[in-house]
Write a protein that binds this DNA or RNA. Sequence first.
DNA 1: CTGAAAGCGCTTACAG
DNA 2: CTGAAAGCGCTTACAG
Lengths: 362, 362
Amino acid sequence: MRDVAQRAGVSPATVSLALSGNPRIPDATRTRIAAVARELGYQPHAGARALRTDLTRSLGLIVSDVANPFFAELAGEIERAAAAAGYSTVLCNSDEDARRQDDYLATLLAGSQVDAVLLIPTAAMTPGIRSAGASGARLVLLDRPILVSGTAAERHLASSPVVRSDATAALDDAADLLTRLGHRRFGIIAPPLQTQVGQERRDLFRGALVARGINRRDIAVVEGDFRQDSGARAIGTLLERTRPPTAVFAADGLMAIGALQGLRRAGLRVPHDMSLVGFDDAPWFDLFDPPLTVVAQPISTLAKAAVTAALDLIAGKTATGATPPCRMVRRSSCGVPPDSGPVEPDGTAARHSRRRPERKRS
Amino acid sequence: MRDVAQRAGVSPATVSLALSGNPRIPDATRTRIAAVARELGYQPHAGARALRTDLTRSLGLIVSDVANPFFAELAGEIERAAAAAGYSTVLCNSDEDARRQDDYLATLLAGSQVDAVLLIPTAAMTPGIRSAGASGARLVLLDRPILVSGTAAERHLASSPVVRSDATAALDDAADLLTRLGHRRFGIIAPPLQTQVGQERRDLFRGALVARGINRRDIAVVEGDFRQDSGARAIGTLLERTRPPTAVFAADGLMAIGALQGLRRAGLRVPHDMSLVGFDDAPWFDLFDPPLTVVAQPISTLAKAAVTAALDLIAGKTATGATPPCRMVRRSSCGVPPDSGPVEPDGTAARHSRRRPERKRS
DNA sequence: CTGAAAGCGCTTACAG
DNA sequence: CTGAAAGCGCTTACAG
């Protein structure tokens, strides 16, 4: 900047003013300075500017697992939306570890490294989230809401915008599809039940089933941990029941993939022996064997809403959250139950085998 | 920091020295200061430190597409390796757009936002890469090498470490497998041929085939653009040939997925009508229909090597690149060619249909 | 053993 | 219309 000032024959202050478009600098001066800056390849030092203005023009994003295709795509869309607004994105990966999440939260916030943090919490309330809230940090809660108590420490947190999808209608569609196909016994592979998403997806789907006359005792809930393996293990647990379900809802993308893997290992065919509904979607979910019926989240809408909320927070405006709806994408992983009669309720493919699942052990 | 100094009854300078573990501060003083710092929840301001030391303890990572599962996983592993060394990672997504890549390069480097940049180039040399090199930036080239000319502007660049996988042996295995199965006509869906990976993967695989007696004219090369769609389109092009290939190698993860999609849309079954070998791997590639045979890159090794190279560069040591080998993962997407005789060369499953592919147009 | 001072590269009241 | 000066929060020679 000093070089630019010298070459343009003005003071550094004028350079700063001119480059920031301050109207008190006449156009002639501004263009001259801009020309010199370009010629010298001047790029302002972001850190110095941040130190002075306390604004970094960057956003922190703490995801719980980048390798999860849903979060990878979400991260990509957020980065895109932020870039469009002139913000860069610092990506942190908590790896579903509450401690790593809290560490990142502290570093990002306390060091003023970013203007706001978009957080996909690993679990329910943690000390790090609580103290971030107490310190008045600009926080956007993404994908997984958090139960906030009314205590003083958590009061501020309660006003943090929450951006997440609403699965109510889509889960209702899924329940409708499966019950129409004739299913009466269900399994739910839920995210950790200590998280609000865990409880919510379970409750929403179970509620939709009960509303259609399914007996609550015929809905088995197995808790997973958002990882692929836990989906496979959950299938094992469900198959060990005296009367195993004929349809499973895996309430997370990676766990749905794991469930498919578990079913295959158990020698069950989908949908002939077991129907499966997953969560989240990716451009290659239709290549699976079988193509997976899913409840898809509106990723791009979520990303834009999250970035907008963060920018509003930074601008000091009241930031509102958003809960755009999910939608069910029907593919061929849902068919009639294996023990159903010969009548096809709605022309589904599942004509082939009717034999009982081969269970590893009974 | 001033508060801590006051409370501990020392000067800010002493706080700085104590907290950075300078040996000239006696242990007693240090522990007292540390206690006060903890009590006050003091976190140093990263930006201010960076301004003074010109070291940010963060790494920039420019990927060409986060939604690509290979890059998502790579980004996750890099973030993990960097975090282990106390570095945070700024993720930028160039979206295979050379201009966006160059913009990011300029912002990250010129503003001293990061200590080094790990770059997955979108294409061959660009103005941004050239000027980054000329300015002596600490740059690690990842996954896709770049042809560097001997000109002065590019001399420094030539010494940037390159971290990438070596597909030679794995592609040789793939060529071996396919020729043994009886294939004689091949298709290659290559990354852009202006990139070095594009040329290299094509040349390596084609070379391995030619070495096994395949006629070079029976190896059709179609250029893709790293995107899923381009894989599907390439299949269309290959099927329009007078004598279409019986085996296709899609030299990138997303393009392989697209190829599978294209084959399905064309009504061809894999491997009965067409064998397919992909590139890259993910924990769910074995759930595809059919499970995909791939050349898998050693992602975690690449990530660690890239971070090590960056840290060496920052430390002023000579940084060396790395080229760990890929390996072929055989699954069921490769079978005998549809026009082969009744003899199975090596007990592969592919027994079913022998009918000619249904071509959209001939 | 510890403190006062300079300075990293900016921005922004304040003065002229 | 433009410049001199202060200060953001640190680190690090330098002095005592």
